[in-house]
Design a protein around this nucleic acid. Structure first.
Lengths: 245, 245
DNA sequence: CGCATCGTTGATCAAGCTCAAGCCGCGTGG
DNA sequence: CCACGCGGCTTGAGCTTGATCAACGATGCG
């Protein structure tokens, strides 16, 4: 499937996981990888399966979600190109604690557990990079936990949009920053609210000209203002008549 | 300070971080450790400081908490004897993203970053154990995130109590399982609610005979029932008159 | 003894969830 | 090519949960 090793190699180089590795090392690493394709709506793995493989996403978007006994779903993370998926759990040899669903057609490199461990022993740099990415994800989750605990829905949704913009197109895209393949339901499950509330909030923002709404997509016009809302420099209703007594 | 190396060694052996290591290896590891004492209300480290040291708690309870710009605090984790603290962040050479405060007088072993890295290179088993503990913590945080997102306050508080019982005394304690040095405020910050709500819930549980309340302590009488509440086998008000029409 | 910390309880109220109803747009098959 | 249905989205009305505010009681420490 991988017919163009050189350009493949370039793509690998860009991934943060492989920062600081030599071309020769990359070659070895790539040699042990398999290329996996998962179509939209397909699963890389599902909650509860034995964790045998970890992935580096080359193309597409993946939704990492956990489902609770009553069937309510929560989105823990969205992955895009360059992100590594399931490193920790694979190294600890357990079961996947959540499911990874492709929300667009995906291509990813895959390494099996034993291979990964072997490569990391061979190239400690790889283990260190892995650790750093884990640490980052850990901190992001901690932050989101704190936000969920202390902030209001509007702030959290704003924050989610800002994060997605930064993470998905890292500012490269043109001014009406696009967010595609993203339903209101997704946003709700990312921020711990309902699709109704997300819908209302987006509508209100659209009226204020902050963004444009569409089916499975948003286009952000005023990212700064959204960032303000996320940081609670609140532009909204602080109108209490001090004492109606 | 460490005048009794042999018994010290035994304590080290018990820590999950050191599972599978030989006595000789433990000796080396212990040789590089320093013993740290932190009194109640003291800090091991504070949010924002450079992460230089990681700890293995020998005695006492530590509260890992994060504080947001508006000053609201969130408890990410409570540590007790045998737990490792700040492994990830130390290995990734960043700043502590949260603060660690002793809620009782504490004694802990400490290793500096360079030492830790060196030891892990020397004894890969140490790195693997570390990874596994990180993976566990990660999963716990994911679960709590999902709970915060989907469950009601009463469930979350019940869950928090159940977790604390298991984690603190691992069933060894006698039947009215004690939870000490634990304020309503702590419980609130662990479960994303307010101390008022926690107080009401505890009072109600006390009336039902599930536990006994006291200043900075609870004594659990009926752990099973609390577990049921946590799992939403709800013993409470399902009384809708089907149609008052 | 007095102050600080911790806890309880009542009254009030708003944020946001739930339910219901209907719209829009797109893909599919007749 | 059209119509039909499904998945996604919107909006309104009503209601519940749990936050907030306020006042007071209890416990322990210096």
């Amino acid at each position: 499937m991988a017919r163009t090793p050189d350009s493949e190699l370039k793509l690998l180089t860009k991934a943060a996981l492989f920062a600081g590795l030599t071309d020769a090392q990359l070659h070895t690493i790539q040699h042990h990888a398999t290329l996996v394709e998962v179509p939209r709506r397909g699963f890389f793995f599902q909650q509860g399966e034995a964790a045998t493989t970890f992935y580096l996403i080359r193309q597409g978007q993946v939704r990492l979600s956990q489902i609770n006994p009553e069937g309510k779903q929560v989105i823990i993370h969205l992955f895009g190109p360059g992100d590594v998926m399931a490193v920790i759990v694979v190294l600890s040899n357990a079961a996947y604690p959540l499911s990874a669903e492709a929300i667009t057609d995906c291509i990813a490199w895959a390494w099996r557990r034993e291979t990964a461990v072997h490569l990391m022993e061979q190239f400690p740099r790889l283990a260190i990079n892995g650790m750093e990415m884990v640490a980052q994800r850990f901190q992001e989750l901690q932050n989101r936990y704190r936000e969920l605990s202390t902030e209001r829905v509007e702030q959290r949704v704003a924050r989610a949009l800002v994060r997605l913009i930064h993470q998905r197109n890292g500012y490269q895209a043109q001014k009406p920053y696009p967010l595609l393949a993203l339903t209101r339901q997704d946003l709700a499950e990312m921020t711990g609210t309902t699709l109704y509330t997300v819908s209302r909030i987006c509508s209100s923002w659209e009226q204020q000209g902050l963004l444009e709404t569409g089916r499975e997509q948003l286009h952000i016009h005023n990212l700064d203002e959204l960032t303000n809302i996320a940081d609670d420099l609140r532009p909204s209703l602080p109108n209490l008549p001090p004492k109606p007594d």
